[in-house]
Every structure is written in structure tokens, then in C-alpha cells.
Simulated scan of single mutants.
Amino acid sequence: MSKELKLGIITIGIIIIFIWGFNFLKGENIFTSGSRVFQVEYAKIGGLSKSSPVTINGLKVGKVDKIEFDTSEEKKGFLIVTFTVENTFEFSRKSIVKIYSPNPLSGSSLAIVPNYEGEIAVSGDLLFGEMEESLFTSIGERLNPLQQKIERVIVRTDTLFSSINKVLNENTINEINSSISNLSGAITDIRTTIQAVNAMVTDNQENLTSTIKNTKKITENFSKVSDSISTIDFGKMVAKAEEAVGNFNDISRRINNGEGTVGKLLNDERMYDNLEAATKELEELLRDIKLHPKRYIHFSIFGKSPVPYADEIKN
């Protein structure tokens, strides 16, 4: 056998081994015949992906071949999972294909829960699928969105730190240090002021105590006055005031109508004229008494007659 033939055989063997190993790593065995193809439909797949393993009672018997959307109108949006089973283990069409997550660090897998009643499942059958709700499934379903959010947060954080580095140049840092120094001085002044206030309060503590006591007494007195005011029957006071106003209005009405002495005095003109004439005569009488008192008071030892009254002639 020539060297060229030997080299060709070795090369073909290496290529065959390479192809077999590559497919073996993908979960396929090209030397095994009789693999069956099944389909199952889900509303959601919870992190299941192409090449995910298919197991029966924990034993790997196949893999997921493809995942595509259902194009029918009644189940639009549902997902059809096609998988292959290379083992010759038989199960009926009533078997259930569950999506589960074996651990939180791996993706989801398919597990065939075999049922042996009814017709045996053959290649091309559509089996019934379920989603196993578990902690691992929920984590696997949320890993991708969470990873995307974390990546966005990391990008934003990097942008933020880049902006901070641009802002925090040497001049800005010096200004921040100066501001901190000024703030420290302001805090020192505030502490000094607080100490002075505390000293003033301590020195005038007795006066403050006395002032507080006086304020308390004043408040108590106001409270007593308020209690006294609350006991006054303002309704009766208002009623009596209204009654007095009514009486006053009645008296005013009667005076205006000429009733009673005061009313007649204010409304009778003749009485006013008579009073005025009487006043004038009384004034003249008093004037005459003042000028001629002997006419009214006369003392005579010898019986002299008094001077008769004579009305003065007014010029």
C-alpha cells in the first residue's frame, strides 16, 4: 500500500471522526438510525432553545430540533417545538411533554412523561405539552430580560462615570475643596453661636421659668374667663335688648303721635306759646322785683301805703 493511499485513508477517517464528534457534541448520533420526530405546541416556552435536551425519566433520548411560530389564525402567536427522539422506547400519544428547568444555571429542557394507554406515538405526531411552573423555570424565563437590563444599566453607569470624570477636573476639585473648607468654617460658626445661645439660656433660666409660669397663669385665667363667658345666656341678653329697643320705638312713636305729656308738650304749639308767654311774664316779674323790691316787701312803722305797681314803658 502506497503512502498516498494510507494518507488518504487516514484523512478520510479524521474527517469522519470530526463530523461524528461535532454532531455528537450537538446531541446527534449519525450512526444511530430510527430516530423519530414529534411536535408539541406551547403558549410560552420559558427559556427553551434549539438543541435543548429531551429526556424520559431523566435519561436523555433526544434534542429540540427547531422552534417556530404557529401561523394559523386560531392559535396565532403560539410556538410549535419540533424535537427528535433517538431511543426506541415506546409511549402512547397521551404522553405529556413538559418544559422544566433542572437548575437555575442552565436553560430549560423537555421531559416526556410517558403514558402507555391508547395508540403508540409514531413519528410526526403532535403531542400534548405543559409548562412546569417552578422556581428554576421562572428564573430561566427571566434570565434573558434580566441580563439585558443589567447590560443597559452597566452601559449607563459607564456613561455616567465618564461624565463624572469630565466634570471632576482639577479646577472643579479645587473648588469643591474650597467649598468644603467654607462649609467647615460655617459649621464652626454655627457651633459657636449655639454655645452662646446655650450659655444665655443657662444664665436666664430662672427668668425663663418665671416667664413660663406667668404665661401658664395667664392662660389659666383666659380659660376661666372663657368658661365664664360660655355660661352667659346670650340668647336672653339679645331678647332683652330687643325688648328694650321695642319699648323705645313704642315711646318714640307715641311721642311723635302726640300721646302723653311729653308728646303733647312737643307737638302742641299753643302750649309752647303759653309756656313762652308765661316765661316772659315771669322774667318781667323778676326784673320788677329786682328794680322795685319795696312794691312787694314793705315794712312801715307809721303805716305808709306802698307804691302802686306801674308797668314800665319800653323804649
Score class of each variant (00 low, 15 high):
126 L>Q: 14
103 N>M: 03
150 I>N: 14
149 K>M: 13
82 T>I: 08
101 S>C: 03
50 K>E: 10
73 E>F: 11
82 T>H: 07
37 V>R: 05
155 V>F: 13
126 L>V: 08
100 Y>E: 00
132 E>V: 14
110 L>G: 00
119 E>D: 10
58 G>Y: 07
143 L>G: 10
82 T>V: 03
115 N>E: 15
43 A>M: 05
59 L>C: 01
100 Y>M: 01
101 S>V: 04
152 R>N: 06
50 K>T: 07
61 V>P: 02
108 S>E: 04
134 S>R: 08
89 F>T: 15
145 P>A: 08
74 E>Q: 14
67 I>E: 01
138 S>K: 04
141 E>K: 14
118 G>R: 02
54 V>T: 01
35 S>N: 07
45 I>Q: 02
133 E>N: 11
118 G>T: 02
53 P>Q: 05
124 G>P: 01
130 E>R: 08
36 R>S: 08
47 G>R: 08
66 K>V: 12
58 G>N: 05
55 T>R: 13
120 I>Y: 13
74 E>H: 07
35 S>V: 13
155 V>C: 04
31 F>I: 15
83 F>E: 04
60 K>D: 13
162 S>E: 15
138 S>Q: 08
118 G>E: 11
66 K>C: 03
126 L>W: 00
127 L>Y: 05
123 S>C: 05
149 K>W: 14
83 F>L: 04
137 T>I: 13
62 G>Q: 02
101 S>H: 12
96 I>K: 11
129 G>V: 13
124 G>D: 03
85 V>F: 07
78 F>G: 03
133 E>F: 12
47 G>T: 01
149 K>T: 12
159 T>H: 15
113 V>M: 03
45 I>C: 15
41 E>P: 05
61 V>L: 11
164 I>T: 10
65 D>R: 09
110 L>Y: 02
54 V>L: 00
118 G>P: 01
121 A>H: 00
84 T>Q: 08
70 D>W: 00
53 P>K: 14
58 G>P: 00
165 N>E: 14
124 G>E: 06
53 P>D: 00
158 D>C: 07
87 N>I: 05
44 K>C: 00
146 L>S: 11
126 L>E: 13
51 S>D: 15
75 K>V: 04
119 E>W: 10
143 L>I: 09
159 T>A: 11
41 E>N: 14
67 I>A: 10
148 Q>E: 14
94 K>A: 12
69 F>G: 14
124 G>I: 05
112 I>D: 00
106 S>N: 15
112 I>L: 01
36 R>M: 07
57 N>F: 11
53 P>Y: 03
62 G>W: 07
151 E>V: 04
86 E>H: 04
86 E>M: 05
38 F>I: 04
87 N>C: 12
123 S>R: 09
84 T>F: 00
45 I>G: 02
134 S>I: 09
128 F>M: 11
146 L>M: 03
98 K>C: 10
84 T>Y: 12
124 G>W: 06
116 Y>T: 09
42 Y>T: 07
